[in-house]
Amino acid sequence: MTVNELSRMEDFSPVVLADADRDIDGVYIGDLLSWVMGKATSGDAWITIMSNINILAVASLTDSACVVLAEGVTLEEDIKNAAKSKGINVISSQLSAYDIALRLSQAI
């Protein structure tokens, strides 16, 4: 499944689609950024409730396919702009990390 397709699924909405044709082939859930950096792998949809600017560097360095903001977490405008310029996809959902992972498990 591509990031674009995920962003169109029910209960998901696009925040930043900068490289929307990327394939999602795995999932990682975590909020401790060092932990995520050590464990997330290339092509993962990274589900988190963190929304500070550092998530962009972590998403970029782990080569995550997209960041999925859970529980209705939002991004500030300047962070959205930074994500756009760094080519990082961000999707949001009101669902919990667990429910997002369940949906992804069925979809990818």
Binding site: D31, L32, L33, S34, W35, M37, G38, N54
Partner: peptide
């Protein structure tokens, strides 16, 4: 901010 996990 999500750091300080003792993983660095």
């Amino acid at each position: 901010l999500g750091f300080g996990a003792g993983m660095g």
